[in-house]
Amino acid sequence: MAKKKQEEMSFLDHLEDLRWHLIRATIAIVIVGGVAFIARDFIFDTIIFGPKKGDFVTYEFFCKVSKTLGLDESFCIKELPFRIQSRTMAGQFSAHIWTSIWAGFILAFPYVLYEFWRFISPGLYENERKNARGFIFIASLLFFMGVLFGYYVISPLSINFLATYQVSPEVHNDIDLGSYISTVRTSVISCGLIFELPILIYFLTRIGLVTPQFLRKYRKISLVIVLILSAIITPPDITSQIVVTIPILILYEVSIVISRFVIRQQAKQEKALRKK
């Protein structure tokens, strides 16, 4: 579909353009999700159920760290004492479909961003497009870093705590398949999106809603919000919350640096325009 010039496009033209970008992004997710559907054994046995196994790399790492520091060896486990069950007729098939779709979204994320960028970039000035050339690469890198953090840190922390917690020896943990997958999926997707904070701050600074001074002024309030957020996406123990809080605080400080960089760039551009 031949594109009109941005300034000549009506509101309905913009909606039509957006519709085609969404269609192409959806097709990419479906195609990649189809590949994930075929690779069922790898997706479920190796990835989804990886944090359920006692020899998962995260448990072995924390076990070694605990032994080195002489701390509690609760992560030195051979097997997690719970079973996963499906209690509905279509439970396993439904889990297979939706897990494939979410896998398609995660793996096709760079292309989804590319379509998003193609939609908004015509509305930017040439110098703004130049300054944001690395948008897709950086945003995708941050997203995948968040996904890996969620999978290798948040998921095993949550599963190890919640699946082994007992109110009484009389109660056995037989975890529903959907509940287990939801825990892994929520950990992975939420961390992937949280790691996009520097990108969000970049655009908020560009449009004037956020400044470095604002971010520094409300740093303490942000710390409280981060702690609350960490408590939501992690099990209720201090160690897990600290592990999650550290990278989020680092991202916040990086966002301040990015915001300061954007302000400086805008000041240079304004100065250059005044000289002309």
Rank of each mutant, 00 (worst) to 15 (best):
Q6T: 03
F11L: 14
E16D: 13
D17I: 00
H21S: 13
I23W: 08
I27A: 13
V32Q: 00
F37S: 00
I38M: 04
A39Q: 11
F44V: 01
T46R: 13
T46P: 01
F49L: 05
G50N: 04
P51R: 07
K53N: 12
D55I: 03
D55H: 09
D55W: 04
G70S: 02
I77R: 07
K78M: 09
L80D: 01
R83I: 02
R87D: 08
R87A: 05
R87N: 13
S94C: 03
H96G: 05
T99Q: 02
I101V: 15
W102V: 09
I106E: 09
L107Y: 12
A108Q: 10
F109R: 05
W117S: 07
S121C: 00
S121N: 06
S121L: 00
G123M: 08
G123V: 09
G123Y: 08
G123E: 05
K130E: 14
N131A: 15
F135V: 08
I136P: 10
I138K: 10
S140I: 09
F144K: 13
F149Y: 12
G150V: 06
V153S: 10
I154Y: 06
F161G: 02
F161V: 05
Y165M: 13
V171C: 01
H172T: 14
S179M: 01
S179Q: 08
Y180D: 03
R185M: 14
V188D: 06
S190Y: 13
L193Y: 15
I194F: 15
F195C: 14
E196S: 10
E196G: 10
P198D: 13
I201W: 11
I207Y: 15
G208D: 08
L209P: 02
V210F: 10
T211R: 12
F214R: 13
R216T: 03
S222C: 08
S222W: 10
S222R: 01
I225R: 01
I228E: 07
I232Y: 03
Q241T: 06
I242V: 15
V243N: 01
I246P: 04
I248R: 02
I248M: 10
L249M: 09
E253P: 04
V254Y: 01
S255P: 04
S259R: 06
S259G: 05
I263P: 01
I263Y: 00
Q266K: 14
Q269H: 06
A272I: 02
L273N: 08
K276T: 07
